[in-house]
């Protein structure tokens, strides 16, 4: 078995009286695509936020490649190699698509702080080429000088993905990458996430859409009311009676 990349141990998080996460244990293994599913309010986003430094768990530990992530500011977690792709596109709406991609590329090159007020952006050929290549990979090159706020929602999601990928993360955290997408866009995103570099990358995916989950995931963890109730391969999860009760059963009846 490959080595464990991200290890979440005994993580608890309460908001007031609400137990958002209780004693969550999860191991993400190098090279796998791990889906976290669960009904609304199960604590999926809270778990992700605890990993990237947006929230600090009440207790427990989050270890990434042997380094403790708890209490580390978000920008350092990013440089440790854990990059999050947001559910609602968190882009730079007033900047061009090109700039939107050059910023994460600069972050990877310059680190958390680097002052270069007298360098010319026009001379940053490497960064520029890298951004343009990434736009082309995602089919966005025709919008390269448009404001990111002006493109369609689906394109924004793709831009968001491109911004995560240009940083060459070791672990990519995807928060509902296909939420709100039309069926053919969803399928295109699935293909994108399976192909090339993206396919080999270690990924954690939070997703509602079972079609996406079963197309992509190597392993699935089911989160319900803040507890991990099952972890296993898609087949194991499908047959797990606890999961059926908590989640899949209801979902299948709806469909």
């Amino acid at each position: 078995m490959n080595k464990t990349m991200l290890e979440i141990k005994g993580v608890n998080k309460t908001f007031g009286g609400l137990h958002a996460l209780s004693d969550v244990n999860l191991q993400i293994v190098e090279g796998e695509t791990h889906a976290i599913i669960g009904p609304n309010g199960a604590g999926k986003s809270t778990l992700l936020n605890c990993c990237i430094g947006k929230l600090i768990p009440d207790n427990g530990s989050v270890t990434f490649n042997g380094r403790n992530m708890i209490g580390m500011p978000p920008h350092e977690i990013n440089h440790a190699g854990m990059v999050r792709v947001f559910q609602t596109p968190e882009i730079f709406p007033d900047l061009s698509l090109m700039d939107n991609l050059m910023i994460p590329a600069l972050a990877s090159r310059d680190g958390t702080i680097k002052f270069n007020p007298f360098k010319s952006m026009g001379k940053e050929k490497n960064i520029r080429d890298e951004a343009m290549q990434s736009l082309a990979d995602f089919g966005l090159e025709k919008f390269h000088d448009q404001h990111a706020g002006s493109i369609s929602r689906g394109d924004k999601r793709r831009l968001e993905l491109a911004m995560g990928l240009i940083q060459h993360p070791t672990l990519l955290l995807l928060d509902e990458p296909t939420a709100g997408m039309a069926r053919h866009d969803t399928n295109a995103t699935i293909d994108l996430l399976k192909s090339g570099k993206m396919g080999e990358m270690t990924k954690v995916i939070i997703e509602h859409d079972m079609h996406v989950v079963f197309s992509l995931a190597d392993r699935i963890s089911v989160l319900a009311r803040g507890h991990i109730i099952a972890t296993g391969t898609p087949e194991e999860i499908k047959d797990d009676p606890k999961v059926k009760e908590a989640y899949l059963g209801e979902e299948q009846e709806d469909e």
């Binding site: 947006k54 978000p74 920008h75 730079f92 709406p93 007033d94």
Partner: peptide, 18 residues
Amino acid sequence: LKLRAIKSNQTRMTYTGF
């Protein structure tokens, strides 16, 4: 460019590693 990005979306800047 980084300053302009801070104006546009400062939260994103921190998650982008700045």
